[in-house]
Design a protein around this nucleic acid. Structure first.
Length: 490
DNA sequence: TGAAATGTTGGGGCG
DNA sequence: ACGCCCCAACATTTC
């Protein structure tokens, strides 16, 4: 009788598409079992939110990159599509798997799936291990003295930082053994069959020019940031006209790099090169905002659909006209900084953080359009669209969120432009029809004298729209509407 | 992780 | 020389 083949271990990849600091993969390899590394593209399980267009594009390339990396060390990535739970159970049964490993997720539907999978696989006698590869601290580990979760960022982050430092990241495994795909197992599909890439039309040109999805691209971004820019992070992070940020968000979103890798690399660079603590802390605090958003999502599962502060439930949102929505989406509001941001988003799959706040504030406060509608658009167009960050941030801007912007904090798109894009370089890049307008008018073309406009080759209303609302009046309208939320109407 | 309105101060022009 | 006014510039309050 031939010897029994060793029972394989399954590694279920999800939002952790990397090999370094990959606890699930590392733990699986340590069992000594041959490995089935899988990714499940799941559009069938109830409650799961389908990825948006930009995220789908990113995912395609990230999976390509992950598959190559696995092959390089003797492994293989198999892709399945369909409802996660039955696929997993069928695979585990067909493979006679001894164990399964995955990185935890924090959305409600994801947690429900993972919970049930854990129960059913355990019942089938399979070792199930879920690991934290996403966050510096688990949401249930950061609590106030009363045992409640934090609703304000600063105390949250203070408490998180008072906890033991996250463990140092794991090195990428250098070798693994792929298990043969079992005969009775669900059919794998080729990546192309998932149709993640746009075809008619192919709008991804700007994305290809901007990004290198995958672990190598993530590491390159981190290195460039720590070598060149972090020393001025605190002062330049708000400047969309300069490359002051890390450009890591979409890599983080797909788990091509982990929070603790970033944390430790930053600390290391700080001490190695004597970088200012102010800049390093500020950068790590942004990882802290991401932690906070995940923490909120975990404790408030309806973050996408419900106001975190219920007093916003009665807010008098306007019914958006198709035309004003498309003006905002297409970067035709007549406010240059808003339009530059929305066009950057459409072209590149990202938007500078400062400009996200300005553009979001414009939709919510100047147009009085429900934050959920803006969130949907960002979900579809951002490569870093994340169930935690995108929702928490939109609620923050709207004022309905945790540690929200106060109701009276309304961004003035002209002042914000002048302050953070002082020479208009960012506007000129994404709103080229304004390129010839001199600095003093670049953020308020409607105030430019006729001769100046003529010289710049602009006729307002023809070459570039007149402002779709008057900000000063829109502000008054927003304050009046927001006044209704001041008193709790519960 | 604002902005606008209102209040205060101080220097210069001017009678 | 002196007081008054004007108005930046800055500070404080309010939305």
């Amino acid at each position: 009788m031939p010897p029994m083949p060793p029972r394989p271990a399954i590694v279920w990849f999800r939002d952790d598409l990397r090999l370094s600091d990959q606890q699930a993969l590392t733990a699986a390899i340590e069992t000594g079992a041959p490995i089935l590394a899988i990714y499940i593209f799941d559009e069938k399980s109830p409650g799961l939110r389908a990825p948006g267009g930009a995220t789908r594009w990113w995912l395609h390339h990230s999976l390509t990159s992950l598959a190559r990396s696995l092959e390089r060390i003797g492994g293989r990535l198999d892709i399945l599509t369909g409802p996660s739970l039955p696929l997993l159970l069928d695979l585990a049964r067909a493979a006679d798997a001894q164990a399964i490993f995955w990185t935890r997720r924090y959305g409600a539907a994801e947690i429900a799936i993972d919970k049930q999978a854990k129960a059913e696989l355990s019942d089938a006698g399979i070792l199930v291990r879920s690991l934290n590869g996403q966050l510096l601290h688990e949401p249930w580990e950061v609590q106030s003295k009363l045992g409640d979760f934090y609703r304000v960022y600063s105390p949250f982050w203070r408490a998180a930082q008072a906890r033991p430092e996250p463990a140092p990241p794991l090195p990428a495994p250098s070798k693994m053994k792929a298990a043969v795909w079992p005969k009775q197992a669900p059919k794998t599909v080729a990546l192309d069959r998932l149709n993640l890439l746009p075809t008619k039309p192919d709008w991804a040109g700007g994305l290809r020019d901007t990004w290198q999805p995958g672990e190598a691209g993530a590491q390159a971004r981190l290195e460039a940031f720590l070598d060149n820019r972090i020393g001025q992070y605190a002062s330049l992070r708000d400047r969309p006209d300069q490359p002051g940020t890390s450009f890591l968000s979409a890599h983080i979103r797909h788990g091509e790099i982990s929070a603790r890798q970033i944390y430790h690399a930053t600390k290391h660079a700080q001490h190695q090169h004597g970088l200012p603590a102010r800049d390093c802390d500020k950068f790590i605090a942004e990882i802290g905002w991401r932690e906070f958003a995940h923490h909120l999502l975990y404790h408030f599962p309806d973050l996408r659909s419900r106001n975190f502060q219920s007093k916003f439930d009665a807010f008098p949102w306007r019914d958006p006209q198709a035309q004003e929505l498309s003006a905002w989406q297409g970067g035709q509001t007549g406010y240059p900084i808003v339009d530059a941001g929305m066009r950057e988003l459409w072209q590149t799959g990202t938007m500078h953080n400062r400009v996200r706040m300005i553009a979001a504030s414009f939709l919510v406060k100047d147009l009085l359009i429900d934050w959920r509608i803006g969130e949907e658009w960002f979900w579809d167009t951002l490569c870093d669209a994340c169930p935690a960050n995108n929702t928490a941030s939109w609620q923050w801007v709207a004022g309905s969120g945790a540690d929200a912007a106060p109701y009276f904090r309304i961004f003035n798109p002209v002042l914000q432009g002048q302050k953070f894009d002082p020479h208009g370089a960012y506007v000129r890049k994404y709103v080229p029809e304004l390129a010839k307008l001199p600095d003093p008018w670049i953020h308020q073309p409607w105030d430019a004298p006729e001769t100046v406009l003529k010289q710049a080759g602009i006729e307002l209303g023809r070459d570039y729209p007149k402002p779709m609302v008057d900000h000063s009046r829109a502000r008054d309208r927003a304050l009046a509407a927001l006044a209704t939320t001041k008193t709790d109407m519960a």
